[in-house]
Design a binder for these strands. Structure first.
Lengths: 120, 120
DNA sequence: ATTATAGTTGAATGTATATTCAATTGTCAA
DNA sequence: TTGACAATTGAATATACATTCAACTATAAT
């Protein structure tokens, strides 16, 4: 592998380290999925929704009230969370009750909180 | 608490559940910090950088080559990661070597991967 | 059947942010 | 001290996406 196979305009490339790292990088597809997953938690509204649903199963209107936001925006976000299989719902008459679909979410929250250095 | 204290235009509010949930919600500031933190991992480039740095400490140019991206964009992202105290760096001559600053990152990655259901 | 309402959906808008480009800083070597 | 280069930085651009608004669907009650 000669230097001009590298994309970068510099002379001090540590070829061995770069090659070793490249070798160890998993399929790039994993990073897309990983980022997609973390992005879900990387929004204040969604984080609140998930925390709230971790306390109680609730209908859309209840969640909207807990967060002080419109039904529509909550519903949009719930749609996103549903598509990512992070929440699931059950329909009872006109109402739709949402709940967490995944135990990992709780674990992730706790690690995140630990990182931030807050107790709750 | 009368119904019109609620923000939502619906009749089926489960007052007890809403009040209970509100009571259990932590300081809203926590959600901002939490979301801010997860947002960091919620970007493909940053996820790759962190994974790469988990394999080897590297200079900016090396990272750029591993990811096949420009030095500038990598440097911008490293700046973000540094400001969030997720990576740290040491300067050696003209070069700046970056490494992970935080063990939680690894744990978070693993949980994320577990969620996605991939092995690596 | 008609009306009211819980929830969803699509389009539009505004905001956040990733990457590029160009200029700049700091350090080494000659 | 001058030239080369690793890295940073700011501004500009482009893209992604959260919320709003309005229209629509489905269910329940009268």
């Amino acid at each position: 592998m000669s230097k001009n196979e590298f994309i970068c305009d510099c002379n001090i490339i540590h070829e061995d380290v770069v090659k070793d790292t490249i070798k160890k990088m998993p399929d790039m597809d994993l990073f897309n999925k990983l980022a997609e997953f973390f992005k879900i938690l990387g929004d204040t509204t969604r984080a609140k929704i998930l925390y709230a649903l971790d306390q109680n199963e609730m209908c859309v209107c209840d969640i909207a009230n807990v967060l002080g936001m419109s039904k529509s925006s909550i519903s949009h976000q719930l749609g996103t969370l549903r598509r990512m299989a992070i929440v699931k719902c059950r329909k009872v008459g006109k109402e739709v009750y949402y709940m967490l679909d995944d135990d990992h979410v709780k674990g992730l929250f706790e690690l995140g909180i630990e990182h931030i250095g807050h107790g709750i």
